[in-house]
Design a protein around this nucleic acid. Structure first.
Lengths: 352, 352
DNA sequence: CTTGTTTGCACAATCGATGGTGCAAGAACT
DNA sequence: AGTTCTTGCACCATCGATTGTGCAAACAAG
C-alpha cells in the first residue's frame, strides 16, 4: 500500500528547526507554555513550524508518559442493530465534543470475550470505559478495577459501579398496556392470547417481564406462565419458538410482546414462510424502535429507549468524584405504529 | 469511579521477581525468546509469574518502540444504519481473527472531518486504515500517504489506492429491472412512472443512476431527466422531495428506486403523514437491505451489498505487496420482498 | 591444559513526549 | 554597586517495551 511517506515530524525535529529545546517545543504545542513562561514570539515561531511541517503529536508517546491516552471506550454486545448502533453514534458525538477519541468495540454477549476485550482496551491505556449491555458487567468491573480504570454500566446494570439503564419495568408496562388497549375497541384479548417472546435471564428482560405480567394481571385478570417464552437473543431461536407455537396452535397469538428488535428479526424469519394474510389480526409490541418495523403491515407498537438521555447521564455520573453504585433509570418512550422518528443522524448536516 | 487499583505489573516488576533482566522478560512474553536462546526453565518461570501477577503488556510502550500499535482502523460515514453497522460488525470479526484490535470511527460524510479523523487515528500509530464510504477518499489518502500508513477504500472508490466496492451499475440495473418486471403482469409502468430518489454526486450514486437509466431505456424505451432526484442522503431532504412530488402530482410515482436505506427513512417520514391506502400500487426498490423494510405493506425489492465479500477482498488486497490503484467490483444481491436474510450476527452463538 | 564454540543471558540505547528542576541574563530595588 | 526578583528557557529523568550487542560460563575439541 502507499507508503512513500517520510517519517512524521517530532518535537525533536521542530526543536532543531526552531533552535529551542524539545521541552519548549512540547510545552508550546500542548498548551502548557504559559505556565512555563515561554515568550509569545518563541511560541509563535514553533507553532508556525509545526504548521508547515504538519506536526501531530505521537499519542502513544504522550500516553506512555502521562499514562492517559485520550481514548474513551464503549463496549457493546454487537454493532449490527439500530439500538446499539445509535448508542455508538451518540457516544461518539459526546466523546468527540470532549476532544477525545472514541473507540467502540463489541464483545458478542460473551462474558469471557467481554473481559478480554476490556483487558485489551486497558492495555491501550484508555481513560474511561462505558460498558453497554454486558452479560457480565461485574466481571468487566473486576478487570477495570484492577487497572484503576474509571467505568460505568449502561443498558444492563452491574452491582459495583453506577449503572444508567432504561426503566424497563415501566417500559414493559407501557408496551403491554398499549398492546392490550389496541384490542379493546374490537375483540378484547384473553390472557392466553398475549405472549412474550425473546430475551433471557438478564436484568432488562426480567424487568420487562415483570411489567408485562403485572399489567396482564391488572387489565386481563390473569397471567399464565406459558405466555412467557424467553428464547434468548438469537433471531433463529426466536424463529424456532414461533414455528413451534404455530405448529401447535395453528396460528400465532394475537398479541405479541417481542423483547427486542433482534428477536423481532426472528419473527420476520418465521413470517417469510407464511403469507401475510395469516397475520391480519396480529398486534406486535417490540421493545426497541426501528423505523422500518414501525410501518409493517400489522400494528407495531414500539418502545424507544432514550439513548441520548442515557449517554448524557452516563457522562455526568462517570465524572462524579465518588459515585454510588446505584442504578439510574431513564424513561423510555412509547412509539405508536407508523411513526418515523428522527435520530442521531439528523444532527448531521447533509453535504451536497 | 472505582480506582483502588494498584499499578499494573511491568516487565521490570517481573524482572525483579524472576531475577532476570527486563529484556529477558520481554523476550519471553512476546515470543521472541527462542531466538534469544532463553532457557525453557527461565521462560517457564517468567510465564508463571506473569500469570499470577496478571501481567499484560503496555501497548503504548510497545507501540512507541516498534511504531506499530496493533490497531486497525475503519473509517465510516455513520454508525446508525444497517449497512454500515454490518460493515463494522464484519470488519471487527476479521480484525479480531488476526489478533489485532479494531477501532471503528465515523466521520459524518464530512471531508474535513474525514481527514482530521484519519490524522487522529494516525497519531495513535494505527497499522492499517480501511476507508469506507468516504466523501473524499483521496483527501484521506494524502493524509495516510504522508504518514506512511497502509490504507484502502471500501464502498466508495478513490483514485490513489485500490478500492473494493459494490458493482453499483449492475446493482442499479438489477434493481431497476426487478421493479419494472414487478409491474409487467398487471399494468406496465410508463417511463415517467419510475423515479429515483436520493443519493448525490458520488461514485455509487452515479453508477446506480447510470444503471437505472440504461434499463429504463432498454425496457421502457425512454428515460426522462425529471425522474432522477438526487436529494442527498439526509432523510429529511428526501422527505421534502417526496412531499413536493406529492403536492404537485397528488400521488407518488408507482415505481420508486430509493438510493439507500437512509433515504428510505425519508420516504417513511413522508408516509407517516399519509394513510397506507394511498400507496396500494406502490413498488419500491431500495439500494440497501434492511430486514424490516423487506416486510413493509407494499412490495419492497432490495439490494444487499456483499459486505462480507467486500471486507474479505479488502483484507486480501491490502496485504498485497504492490497493489494497483484499481477498483475491485463485488457483486451485490437482489432480495425479493418479504425476505429475512441472515447476517453477521448469526455467526455468534447465543449464550443462554 | 589451552583454545574455540555454544549457550544463556545482561546491558544500554531507543521510540516521542512530559514535567520537575536548575540556571543565566536582565529588571527592579536598596 | 550589590542584592533580589523575574523572565525565559535548557537539561534530564521518566513512562514500558524492543532489540542490537557484548560477554561470562559451560562445553567441546585438540
Amino acid at each position: 500500500m502507499a507508503s512513500s511517506g517520510k517519517k512524521k515530524a517530532t518535537i525533536y525535529d521542530l526543536s532543531v528547526l526552531s533552535g529551542s529545546s524539545p521541552s519548549t517545543v512540547s510545552a508550546v504545542l500542548n498548551g502548557t507554555w504559559q505556565k512555563r513562561r515561554i515568550k509569545e514570539s518563541t511560541a509563535e515561531l514553533i507553532r508556525s513550524l509545526a504548521e508547515t511541517h504538519q506536526y501531530t503529536a505521537n499519542r502513544q508517546a504522550r500516553g506512555l508518559r502521562s499514562s492517559r491516552s485520550g481514548l474513551i471506550g464503549l463496549l457493546l454486545p454487537i454493532h449490527d442493530n439500530r439500538y446499539f448502533s445509535s448508542m455508538a453514534q451518540t457516544f461518539e458525538a459526546h466523546v468527540r465534543s470532549k476532544g477525545q477519541c472514541p473507540i467502540v468495540v463489541s464483545a458478542s454477549r460473551d462474558p469471557e470475550e467481554e473481559r478480554k476485550t476490556a483487558e485489551t482496551l486497558i492495555s491501550y491505556s484508555i481513560d474511561e470505559l462505558f460498558i453497554c449491555g454486558a452479560t457480565d458487567p461485574d466481571g468487566v468491573h473486576d478487570v477495570c478495577e484492577a487497572a484503576g480504570l474509571k467505568h460505568i454500566n449502561i443498558d444492563l446494570p452491574g452491582s459495583k459501579v453506577p449503572s444508567v439503564i432504561s426503566d424497563n419495568y415501566e417500559g414493559g408496562r407501557m408496551l403491554t398496556e398499549a398492546i392490550i388497549r389496541h384490542f379493546q375497541a374490537t375483540l378484547p384479548l384473553a390472557p392466553d392470547e398475549l405472549y412474550l417472546f425473546g430475551g433471557r435471564n438478564d436484568h432488562a428482560s426480567r424487568e420487562r417481564i415483570r411489567g408485562f405480567r403485572a399489567v396482564k394481571q391488572e387489565l386481563l385478570g390473569a397471567d399464565p406462565d406459558a405466555c412467557i417464552q424467553p428464547t434468548g437473543y438469537a433471531p433463529n431461536n426466536a424463529r424456532l419458538a414461533f414455528e413451534a407455537f404455530y405448529e401447535k396452535h395453528g396460528r400465532l397469538p394475537r398479541g405479541l410482546f417481542v423483547n427486542s428488535s433482534i428477536n423481532f428479526e426472528g419473527l420476520l424469519r418465521f413470517m417469510a414462510g407464511h403469507p401475510h394474510e395469516n397475520f391480519a389480526d396480529l398486534v406486535v409490541g417490540c421493545y426497541d424502535y426501528d423505523p422500518f418495523a414501525s410501518f409493517l403491515p400489522f400494528p407495531v407498537i414500539m418502545i424507544r429507549q432514550d439513548v441520548e438521555g442515557m449517554i448524557t447521564k452516563a457522562f455526568e455520573v462517570i465524572e462524579e468524584a465518588r459515585p454510588q453504585a446505584r442504578i439510574h433509570l431513564i424513561q423510555p418512550e412509547l412509539v405508536q405504529p407508523r411513526t418515523a422518528l428522527t435520530g442521531p443522524l439528523d444532527a448531521l448536516r447533509d453535504i451536497e
